[in-house]
Design a protein around this nucleic acid. Structure first.
Lengths: 190, 190
DNA sequence: GCAGATTGGCTAGCGGTGCTAGACTGCGAG
DNA sequence: CTCGCAGTCTAGCACCGCTAGCCAATCTGC
C-alpha cells in the first residue's frame, strides 16, 4: 500500500501547489490574471488536472480565501495580544484589519468580496473564519455594553469592511482615512 | 439642419436605450447576463454600435451607475424629508439606504462594488453621487458632534455599505440584520 | 443631376475565458 | 504477459470583450 500512499501524498502536494499558485498570482497580478490556463502552466500540469482537484475556478478561489482567513485571524490575534487597554485594543485591531486589507487586497477580495460560495455565517463555516471573527468579538466584548456581542461585532466589522472596500475602489478620499477610522473606533468604544 | 437634428436625436435615443437595456438586464438577470452581444440584440443593432456610443462595457456600466445614483439620491431625499426628529431621520435614512441596496442589488453593485472607473471623491464626480452624499451629510449634521462632517458621513456610509455587502454575499446572518442596523444607528446618534 | 467623399452600420474574426469530451499512456492485478 | 483502469493530455466547445475592414446610404461640390 506504500505506492498508493505516495500517490496520495503527491496528489495532496499538487493540490497545495494549485492553491499556492493561485494565491501568489492573485497577490502579484490581481485576480484577473488568475486564469485556469495560467494556473495550469504554473503548476506544470494541463488544465483539466485542476478540475480533478476542484469543482471549478470558484472552488480554487474559495480555498485561497480560507487560507487567507487564517492569516487574517493570526494578525488580528497578534494585535489583540499586544494591546493592554481594552479601548486601545479595539483601535489596534481595527488598524490591523485595515492594514491586512491594504497589504493583501487580492486575498481580502477572495475572502470578502468575490462571489465565492463559502458557508460563512453558519455552522460549517471554515474554522479560520470563525477564529478571525472570534478575535474581533473578544476584543469588542468590553465595549459592547448592553448590545448583543455577536451583532455588535458584525456591525463593527461591517464598518471596517465598508471603509476598506469603499476606499480601495476610490469611493472615499484616501487622505481622510485615519480620521474616518478614528471616528469609527471612537463611536464604538465610547 | 433639421435632418442632422433628427439624426442626433435618434442617436441620443439609442444611447438611452443602451443604458436602459443594460440596467434592465442587470436588474432582472444580474450583471453576468449583461454581455455586449446580448445588449446589442436587445437594442436591435449590431455589437460594434455599442462602441460608437461608449468606450467599452465598463463605460456602459458607469452610465447605469450614474443613473442609479440619481435614484438612490431621490430615495434618500424622500426619507429625509419624511422624518421630523433628527435621530429618527438618521434611522429612516439608513433604512432607505439598505432598502435600496436590497431592492436593486445590481444597481447598487454598479454604483459601489464593480470596478467601474468613475470619479468619486473628487471635483468632477457625477452630480447624482454628490446629491446622494449631500443627503446623507445633511441628515447626519445634527448628530456629528465635533467630528468633521464629511469624514463622519463617509464613516457612517461605510458602515451601511459594509452591512449591505456583507449580508448580500452571505457573510452575515440575515436574521440579525435589524439588530445590526439599530446598533449602527444608535452608535452614530448617541 | 451626377461623381466623389464621408458617414455609419454591418459581417467576420481575433485572442482570450471557463470548462469538458474523448483519446492515449503507463501502471497494477490476474 | 495481457488486460483493465487511473490518470493525464490534446483538442475543442461556447462564450467573452473588442475591432478591422467592407459596403451601402447619404451628403457635398461641381
Amino acid at each position: 500500500m506504500s505506492i498508493q500512499a505516495r500517490r496520495e501524498r503527491e496528489r495532496a502536494e499538487r493540490e497545495r501547489a494549485i492553491v499556492a499558485a493561485a494565491r501568489e498570482l492573485a497577490e502579484s497580478e490581481g485576480w484577473d490574471a488568475v486564469t485556469t490556463r495560467r494556473l495550469a502552466a504554473e503548476i506544470e500540469y494541463s488544465q483539466p488536472v485542476l478540475y480533478s482537484h476542484f469543482k471549478g475556478k470558484g472552488a480554487i478561489m474559495a480555498a485561497v480565501a480560507v487560507e487567507g482567513c487564517g492569516d487574517l485571524a493570526a494578525e488580528l490575534a497578534a494585535a489583540r495580544a499586544a494591546a493592554t487597554d481594552p479601548r486601545q485594543a479595539v483601535a489596534d485591531m481595527a488598524r490591523a484589519y485595515v492594514a491586512f486589507a491594504e497589504r493583501r487586497p487580492a486575498l481580502y477580495d477572495a475572502i470578502f468580496n468575490l462571489p465565492v460560495d463559502l458557508p460563512f455565517a453558519s455552522k460549517d463555516a471554515p474554522v479560520e473564519l470563525a477564529r478571525a471573527f472570534a478575535e474581533l468579538a473578544e476584543t469588542l466584548r468590553p465595549v459592547a455594553g448592553g448590545d448583543d456581542l455577536e451583532a455588535f461585532t458584525e456591525t463593527f466589522w461591517s464598518g471596517l469592511h465598508g471603509l476598506v472596500t469603499l476606499m480601495r475602489n476610490g469611493r472615499l478620499r484616501r487622505a481622510d482615512h485615519e480620521r474616518r477610522l478614528a471616528i469609527l473606533v471612537d463611536r464604538f468604544t465610547r
